[in-house]
Design a protein around this nucleic acid. Structure first.
Length: 225
DNA sequence: TCATTAAATTGTT
DNA sequence: AACAATTTAATGA
């Protein structure tokens, strides 16, 4: 559990800001508690905020025509998202749902645009963030088609520890196996099997209410068929 | 602080 | 999907 101020201070993009810039950001960014399974924001809404996860875990998800939910990625503590839709000024394409009770930071569009206009550092950060995100999604398409369930769990987990997108993550992720199932698109039972396999491979440790990553590199390289 | 109970999560079928 | 086992959190003595 951390405060909005802590989170801002820990965010990479905030490091290059002047004290005045920092003050404005802190003053205009609001915080909201979202219960588990609650909507952080909905598909179709016009995008008015850049959104950060102060504490908790959210997923970017969508419903296919036949009602099957598809989760694209999870965003843990310290992650910011929505810059793409903000820049394009289009309606939001995905539902953002809290996987557990979370506290969310909302930076108004005006503040975001102002940072974009005044801070070189902020622009630099965004370029890196967009590039990382692009890589993440490309990799995800690849994985969904080429890798088996065990590897998908492995890569999905590894993706949540991306230091560019989600700085300051420890090596422990507090997420139930059920939640991992939502993220990987697998049943809880299958996730349970996968986690055991990965544990036997020495890549992570399965714990009550979460997992601890032991070998990030190994997770990224894990393959099966 | 310890014991009991309820709730959440895991492991297995 | 259902069930049992396990862990944590909450309660009260």
């Amino acid at each position: 559990m951390q405060t909005l101020k802590d989170m801002l201070a820990a965010s990479l993009w905030a490091k290059g800001l002047t004290p005045e810039q920092m003050r404005r950001v802190a003053a205009e960014t609001t915080e909201k508690a979202v219960p588990a399974q609650g909507f952080v924001c909905r598909r179709g809404e016009s995008v008015q905020h850049w959104i950060g996860v102060i504490d908790g875990l959210v997923k970017m998800t969508n419903l296919s025509a036949d009602g099957k939910p598809t989760t694209f990625t999870g965003v843990p503590n310290g992650g910011w998202f929505s810059e793409g839709s903000l820049l394009k000024n289009e309606p939001r394409r995905y539902d953002i749902v809290a996987l557990r009770a979370s506290r969310i930071a909302y930076m108004p569009r005006a503040t975001f645009m102002w940072l974009l206009d005044t801070s070189i550092e902020f622009n630099r950060f965004l370029v890196v963030q967009l590039n990382e995100r692009l890589g993440q999604f490309i990799a995800m398409v690849e994985h969904d088609r080429l890798l088996g369930p065990d590897a998908r769990v492995a890569r999905g987990l590894a993706g949540m520890f991306n230091p560019h997108l989600y700085p300051g993550m420890g090596n422990r992720l507090e997420v139930s196996q059920e939640e991992l199932g939502y993220l990987a698109g697998l049943s809880r039972q299958r996730v349970n099997q996968s986690l055991k396999l990965l544990e036997q491979a020495g890549l992570l440790r399965v714990e009550y209410g979460g997992i601890t990553v032991l070998d990030m590199d190994g997770l990224n390289k894990f393959e099966d068929s």
